[in-house]
Design a binder for these strands. Sequence first.
DNA 1: CGCGCCTGTGCTAACGTTAGCACTGCTGAA
DNA 2: TTCAGCAGTGCTAACGTTAGCACAGGCGCG
Lengths: 343, 343
Amino acid sequence: MITTRDIAERIGVSVSTVGRALADDPRISEETKGRVRQAASELGYVGNRAARMMRGASSNVVALVIPDIRNSFYSTIAHELSKNMEAEGFQLMLSETDDDRMAELRHLRELSANRVAGVIIVPTARPHSESVKLLRAVPHLQLLRKHPSLGSQWFGVDDHEALRRATAHLVAQGHTRIAYLGGPEELPTGAERLRGFRTALREGGLPDDAGRTELGPPSSVQHGREAVRRLLEAPDAPSALVSGSIQLTLGILEELSRQGVKVPGELSVVGFGDEPGFSWWGPGLTTVGLPIQEMATGCALWLLRRLKTKPSNDGPYTSVSPGSLILRGSTAPPGGRGPSKSA
Amino acid sequence: MITTRDIAERIGVSVSTVGRALADDPRISEETKGRVRQAASELGYVGNRAARMMRGASSNVVALVIPDIRNSFYSTIAHELSKNMEAEGFQLMLSETDDDRMAELRHLRELSANRVAGVIIVPTARPHSESVKLLRAVPHLQLLRKHPSLGSQWFGVDDHEALRRATAHLVAQGHTRIAYLGGPEELPTGAERLRGFRTALREGGLPDDAGRTELGPPSSVQHGREAVRRLLEAPDAPSALVSGSIQLTLGILEELSRQGVKVPGELSVVGFGDEPGFSWWGPGLTTVGLPIQEMATGCALWLLRRLKTKPSNDGPYTSVSPGSLILRGSTAPPGGRGPSKSA
DNA sequence: CGCGCCTGTGCTAACGTTAGCACTGCTGAA
DNA sequence: TTCAGCAGTGCTAACGTTAGCACAGGCGCG
């Protein structure tokens, strides 16, 4: 690897001069700068960030810690983040936890050793105490899920409101047996969405047993399919179904298509998130649209500001809009005569 | 930040001893090791990789340089790569080029400054000469697209064969006006897929003007929609359509759904890649399945081997299977009576 | 004419870690 | 008794870069 020393020896100046010339220090004459730049270019010199970091400079890497990049929600986040960060000279490190706290810990250890400048994290249900310690040592920001031990910097969705609205839509159409398919209560998002579901039932004057819930791994398409199968086989199957995760929604749609369930004739469905296929699935999926881009951009800007201004300005959390209900054809009154379809 | 020196002062030994104890050097007594580890844990010591790198150690970061992480093809690659790399203690850096050679160059400069250990790249159509120089200085591997100047280490799909098969399927059903919607010829993949399309037409004994092509940005869903619109409005619209990219396929499906085109009654369609929604789109999309996981794992293993063994073993490129044609309901003989559907 | 200032450059230390060499006791063999 | 060898530890240099200080030469001002 070419160093400033190589350049210095080549043109007969000191390393200091080379360093200053490359930093465009006004004390160096234009003539010398020219020769240095020329030599640097010819030799293919690339500054060594490790050495700079040793001199106190911070790294130009921020990390994104998420469950699974294949989830389009997270890949959109990653994209927006990357775009915003690149514009400011930052690179993005990607760490997948698969919702496993030990994998999360392993990643945070590495990130810490690499002295990343900042971290945006979708924490697991119960982060390891060492993970908490590691995170607290670096500017960080929670995304979607909010864990109290990780501070109050948080960007997310108003999950309670999102599911309240989605469920209320079904209640308003007269459904009295509604199923909710979502993540486990341990996850902050899972708990909030479930709460939103129950709030809507209560507000609709429905009895406690009107709601049926199927909770499980929120990133598992497979779990979505199985849960749907269980719901349909049950003695008094629900007439409507709300989803509390994108991946589960994918599973739901696949299984309903496979079984040829008539939507919304036999079953009304409200999805979560908005994927490319949702609009062309069956009669079109009514679903909760999420402001993903806005959230990602918000995160990026918050972190950038935080990285630029040394003092710890601890702006409190920011909850983004609850997401809007996108009305398509997959919901209708129970037993109603909505567009029927064998998917 | 806690350093070895802090630990040393705390327990009254030298930094050398601390360093060796943490590296589990056999020369240090177990008793001392215990005290060092204890102190390190209490203080929350995390080794500084930058300092290690200065001592000649290589970084534990590999970079993935791709056009756009939102493309599920690339997010799957990123996921598999990340999984394999994490198991070996490597972290993944993500760089998006958006198919812009200048963005590509900017990223490669940063990666180079950060001394990444290796790079897996989906190169742009014509990488900048400096990009080439930067890449050549580090173990790297081309993915999908193969650019001659970047060496012969390549993992990809047999694009020619993939599109030959897809097109041949339509030809066999008797279609004589077939459109191909794909990326530009400048891209190695674009050129190969187009060639495969033409090969199939020729082998099917069709005249040169049987094929209509719409080439454009391969990652643009929007372009897919517009191209479909143009094709349908043309005086003698084709009776079949083959896609040469996942994103374009998404656009195609959206537009066909929107316009309510009967598939395969009015138009037969063969897609590219296999996304969640493809199976439930209209009559089910016949499409080219790609061995994404296998490719990603192959890349990871190749790079890991390359990083472990210092000597430059230059295994030549490896072309993976051509992808299999997944038969669903979206193709039928022209004017035929296949399951018709207004999406 | 002498002094201070300015311009342009060099020297050196420091960042945190590691490896080579040196040192201190101690044990065992000649 | 002397010395080699060993266990256990310390000292120091080096990695590449940067910043503080020093220094040389030239010029203007009193």
